[in-house]
Design a protein around this nucleic acid. Sequence first.
DNA 1: CATAACACTATTGTATACATTTTTGTCGAA
DNA 2: TTCGACAAAAATGTATACAATAGTGTTATG
Lengths: 228, 228
Amino acid sequence: MNKIDQTPWTADLVAADLERAIHEHRIPPGTKLGEDDLAEAYAISRTIVRAALLALSHRHLVELRRNRGAFVAQPSVREAREVFEARALLEPRTAHSAALRMTPQALAVLEENIAQEHAALDAGETGKALFLSGQFHVEIARIADQTTIETFISELISRSSLIIALYWRRRAALCETQAHHALLEAFATADASLAEQLMKSHLLDLVASLDLRNLTQPPTSLREALQR
Amino acid sequence: MNKIDQTPWTADLVAADLERAIHEHRIPPGTKLGEDDLAEAYAISRTIVRAALLALSHRHLVELRRNRGAFVAQPSVREAREVFEARALLEPRTAHSAALRMTPQALAVLEENIAQEHAALDAGETGKALFLSGQFHVEIARIADQTTIETFISELISRSSLIIALYWRRRAALCETQAHHALLEAFATADASLAEQLMKSHLLDLVASLDLRNLTQPPTSLREALQR
DNA sequence: CATAACACTATTGTATACATTTTTGTCGAA
DNA sequence: TTCGACAAAAATGTATACAATAGTGTTATG
């Protein structure tokens, strides 16, 4: 896990690096993130590591337990529902705004994103594909020119990745590309209402593909022990 | 500013304490939050102070400038608009949900909140009144039983307080109590649609009471120097 | 043999020392 | 006098030492 580089790792960079690793399912939920381990991996002191972990905990991607350490978060069924309810509140209207503000450049960015996602899937890099499909949603918020909402959506997307890791029904790869293609069509024709509706459906499909019955709860302590 | 107590200040407590002080306009936007000053005020080391400042920066209440220090945030006109657009997306639907879940206990909490707000206004404690009126909105999200959205709204409320400090038109105190009373009525009768509509209007009124013309921009560096 | 008390180990929590950077103040030259 | 360079001071950035705590293993005792 040694990072070979000469860049000075700042806390933000470490947090971003870890967030991407979590988002891509390279680090599974419940994994303990020991301070010394991380400090050695990035060749920095624990001070920076702690700042990075603090940032991730504020985004609900890492759970800090006093005198216990940092663990990749394991969203509960309840939390999973809440995350997608929040997304349902934010994303459709944001897609609407994005459609109204769409430009050829922005459209190209979205197309490129889908292309990369396809490439990743073909290469069998499901983690990277998952990350890119999340970026598609963040990109829409960026196109809508809503930095504040983009921040919220970005966090919700990352948390969604944890939820997918825990509650995804099938073992097969996520095929969100179809829904994204449909959205792209709506954006290309600047059909805001359609984009809003498609986003709403897309999110509903996502939730429907999860197994959010409370049967498997709680995965808190026992599961954590098994997973590390 | 010396805090006389025997409680062990944790980073979270310090952050909460500072957030309330900012929310109540006891610390104006642009104020420099020196690490040594805070460490002395709370009788803790800079380590804890930095963790607290980091938390506040993640909530966009404090701006951290590398090698420069921490400053109470000064939301731009653009950011101000974004914050209220985000609130417009989240709060009406949340009020709707809250109305459906309303209980006598929850209603009593809201009533008590308004009563305290009145008392604060009568006592001339406009800062405390402002804080309480913000808490009213957070309480609604709590009643809606949406922890995730509550976190977002809580942040947006605190940022709104900074926006009010910078862009409020009149010097007179905010009289949000009327709108809150109307909302209480809707909640009491469990009229979800009405509550949603009232919340939407309330937020529009709030934005309308701000002076968000771009004329006074940018207040970044010069203003900051004058204010500290 | 089971259990409880104890000590040990590993890890996190906090404070502080040192390095780096920015800011400020002073001196000198144009 | 004004401007610039340099030096001193103050603040933040980072690393590390030490303290405190939870987890683990051992041992003694019933």
